[in-house]
Design a protein around this nucleic acid. Sequence first.
DNA 1: TAAAATTATTTGCATTTTGCAAGTATATAG
DNA 2: CTATATACTTGCAAAATGCAAATAATTTTA
Lengths: 149, 149
Amino acid sequence: MENVRNMFQIMSRNFGLLSEQCCDSCCGQEVSLVQSHILYEINRQHNPSMQDIAVALGMDITTFSRQVKTLADKGFIKKSPHPSDQRITILSLTPEGLTVENAINLTVNTQLNGVLSTMSEFERETVLRSIQLFNDAMQRSATCCVPPK
Amino acid sequence: MENVRNMFQIMSRNFGLLSEQCCDSCCGQEVSLVQSHILYEINRQHNPSMQDIAVALGMDITTFSRQVKTLADKGFIKKSPHPSDQRITILSLTPEGLTVENAINLTVNTQLNGVLSTMSEFERETVLRSIQLFNDAMQRSATCCVPPK
DNA sequence: TAAAATTATTTGCATTTTGCAAGTATATAG
DNA sequence: CTATATACTTGCAAAATGCAAATAATTTTA
């Protein structure tokens, strides 16, 4: 059993730094890293509620509530009432929010593809397949990757 | 060009959640996630200065300085003067700090190995080799993974 | 070699983020 | 209908953040 954590820690840190940089360079200081995660996740899910996104990101709901308010005030997120349950708020990106999310997405992808371009075609495909494999395995695991509490 | 960010984003988030959980379960509220990163990095480098660690983690030096103070007060870190340059502070883990770091490391590794154990031997090796490959490629890249500013 | 510029770290703020406890509002169960 | 549960918001108070400025120790340079 080698030290697996090492590799993940480094990868994770690098990706985090990259994301932060992209986040800055795309849209100035308009959105923080956590806010970009929120935009990302709203864009990925289908008509998500507040809970859905907060759970997916493993964020405390009260902190999340405030971040959503900030993003809504900035005009990047729209909060709509659930049609049949008035307690629930459905989140969606506004056109401006989508623009920001797309800009970040493009920049991150460009950076990552730049890194991947230094590999052979075979290596590149192996790497991508591996990450998918690992994500699937994480998904299957019950004990880990469950948001705290 | 597929959406590479997706995979990394998910992997990174999962690993982050896992680390946070491990951090909690190992040592209660004794150390936060960022503090665990600091312990990790000090343990990895050889006689690192404050700058070394702050840069490696992409942290603002002033925030870092305070976190180091907190960890030193908790007795997990020792600050020693550099032998030939009095401006520099060399960081090291105390025995207690090392114990905490080892506990976190063990827990994270155990969790990760649990996830990996659901794969075939071949898949597992491919995944680990891939991550190493990717980290190396990140290392080579000049444009990305450079701490902001 | 003395003043100027550089480097490493710390401190003073003011802002932002965080999370627990408690509150409000809506829906469901008994 | 009352009681309980669910979804979200607010009131704090603590922690984390980062810029500007301070301090302290080297180097550079004129």
